[in-house]
């Protein structure tokens, strides 16, 4: 059975760009566009991995959702799902919107613009964990 990937991002073009390589690699892709619908989709879709954008309705929506899913108060079944976080911050740029990424409860980061090969590679690695 195909593994289910949930993309939570409010930019339809980014969702489209992620969907293409994921579907052609055989994943079943679902999407949500806000923190609330994303959280609801985690329970209905029961994804094998989540790809989460940092900034949606607020500048830190992604951070907050990551905390809800993997933080100290998270449900055990949520904690099992690997999260890949999409960031659009350049490597040499220290301006980040939320807490330092070292303290974020996510499994890996994917830099925007997304390189499909990098995306598939990191996803496979996260799913193996």
């Amino acid at each position: 059975m195909a593994k289910k990937i949930l993309i939570i991002d409010d930019d339809p073009d980014v969702v489209f760009a992620l969907r293409m390589p994921l579907e052609s690699s055989g994943y079943e892709v679902h999407d949500a566009h806000s923190q609330e619908t994303g959280l609801a989709a985690v329970d209905t879709v029961k994804p094998d991995a989540i790809i989460l954008d940092v900034m949606m309705d607020t500048h830190t929506a992604g951070f907050q959702l990551a905390q809800k899913l993997h933080g100290p108060t998270a449900k055990e079944e949520h904690r099992q799902i690997p999260i890949l976080m999409l960031t659009s911050v350049h490597q040499t740029t220290p301006l980040r919107f939320g807490p330092d990424e070292d303290y974020l409860p996510v499994d890996d980061f994917i830099e925007k613009p997304v390189d499909p090969k990098v995306l598939i590679g990191k996803l496979e690695k996260a799913l193996k964990k």
């Binding site: 489209f16 293409m20 613009p113 997304v114």
Partner: peptide, 16 residues
């Protein structure tokens, strides 16, 4: 810009 570049990379790598 990031969205546009992500889409372009899909074409570049043959996913489209």
């Amino acid at each position: 810009l990031a969205a546009g570049l992500s889409l372009m990379k899909n074409i570049e790598q043959g996913y489209a």
